[in-house]
C-alpha cells in the first residue's frame, strides 16, 4: 500500500468493504441476535412459555422432522406453492409477453388485470371457502389469485422495454410477426421473466402461510396453528424457521437457474 493512504474510516461513502469485513459483519449481527435471545430466556427476563430458548427451538425442529412426521407437512406446502405458482406462470408468461408485444392484446387485458391487482388476495378467502370447501382448491386459488396479476403486469412491462432497434433489425432481416415474438422478443425478455418469477415466488409463500393458517389441517401453517392450541411456542417458531429456510432455498435455486440459463449475462452485472 502507498504511504499516502489515509487511515481507513468505518463509514466510507460507497467504498466496497473487503471479504473479511463482510463475513465478520454478517456473523456479528446474528451472534448478537442469538446472544440477546439466549440471555433473555436464561435470565428469566421473558416468560419461557411464550419465548422458548433458541436451543430448544432447534431441538424441536429436529424432533418435528425426524420423530413426528413434519416432513409430509412441508412437502404438502411445497407442492401447493409449486402447483399454484406453476399454473399462474403458465398463463402469465405467454399473456404478459403477448400484451407487451401487441398493443391490441394489451388493450383487451390491461384494464382487466390492473383492476384485479388492487384487490387484496386474502379478501377472497371467505368466498373461496364457500365455493371450494376446505380441500386443496381454495388454497391453490388464493395463491394463484395473489400472484398471477402481478406477474402478468411485470412481464408485460419488461416486454415493452425490449429495445425497438432489436425488433426493427429483425424486421429488416425479413422476420415475420411470429419470428419476432418467439425469436427476438421472448429470448430478449426471458432473463427479466426469471427475475420477476424469483421475486413473485416469495409472495406465493406469504399467501401459502395465510391459506394454511386460516383453513387447513395440513401443511406448515396448519401445524403452527395446532401448536398454538397446545401452547407449543417452540413448534410455532420452528415453523417460522422452516418457512424462512424454504424461501431461501427456492431463492437460491432461482439464482442458480438464472446463472445456468443466461451464461451470456455473466460478463455484465
Amino acid at each position: 500500500m502507498s504511504s499516502r493512504s489515509r487511515p481507513k474510516r468505518f463509514l466510507e461513502v460507497r467504498k466496497p468493504v473487503g471479504r473479511r469485513q463482510r463475513v465478520i459483519s454478517a456473523l456479528g449481527i446474528w451472534v448478537v441476535f442469538f446472544g440477546v435471545w439466549v440471555f433473555a430466556t436464561a435470565s428469566g427476563m421473558v416468560n419461557e412459555l411464550l419465548v422458548p430458548a433458541p436451543q430448544q427451538v432447534f431441538a424441536t425442529t429436529y424432533e418435528l422432522f425426524f420423530e413426528r412426521g413434519f416432513t409430509s407437512d412441508v412437502l404438502i406446502s411445497i407442492t401447493r406453492v409449486i402447483l399454484a405458482f406453476g399454473m399462474a406462470a403458465t398463463i402469465a408468461i405467454p399473456l404478459g409477453v403477448m400484451m407487451g408485444t401487441f398493443p391490441s392484446i394489451e388493450a383487451i387485458f390491461a384494464p382487466f388485470v390492473s383492476a384485479w391487482r388492487y384487490l387484496p388476495a386474502p379478501s377472497f378467502i371467505p368466498i373461496l371457502l364457500m365455493w371450494f370447501g376446505t380441500g386443496e382448491a381454495p388454497k391453490l386459488a388464493l395463491l394463484f389469485i395473489g400472484v398471477i396479476f402481478f406477474l402478468i403486469t411485470i412481464i408485460m412491462d419488461h416486454t415493452k422495454n425490449v429495445r425497438e432497434e432489436l425488433i426493427e433489425t429483425a424486421l429488416t432481416l425479413g422476420a415475420s410477426r411470429g419470428t419476432i415474438l418467439l425469436k427476438v422478443v421472448f429470448p430478449s425478455v426471458l432473463p427479466d421473466i426469471i427475475v420477476a418469477m424469483r421475486q413473485m415466488l416469495a409472495m406465493a409463500w406469504t399467501y401459502l402461510v395465510i391459506a394454511e393458517i386460516v383453513a387447513s389441517t395440513t401443511g406448515i401453517g396448519a401445524m403452527m396453528m395446532r401448536a398454538r392450541r397446545f401452547l407449543n411456542t417452540d413448534e410455532i417458531l420452528s415453523g417460522i424457521i422452516v418457512i424462512g429456510a424454504l424461501g431461501l432455498i427456492f431463492d437460491l435455486l432461482f439464482a442458480a437457474l438464472y446463472r445456468g440459463m443466461f451464461p451470456y449475462l455473466k460478463e455484465k452485472h
Binding site: 429495445r163 432497434e165 426493427e168 424486421l171 429488416t172 430478449s188 443466461f262 449475462l265
Partner: peptide, 18 residues
C-alpha cells in the same frame, strides 16, 4: 413495409445478446 432486400444497421447496438 420492411423486407430482407433492405438490410439496416442502427447506431445503437443491435446484437442479439443471447
Amino acid at each position: 413495409g420492411p423486407g430482407r432486400d433492405r438490410g439496416m444497421i442502427f447506431q445503437a447496438y443491435t446484437s442479439f445478446d443471447w
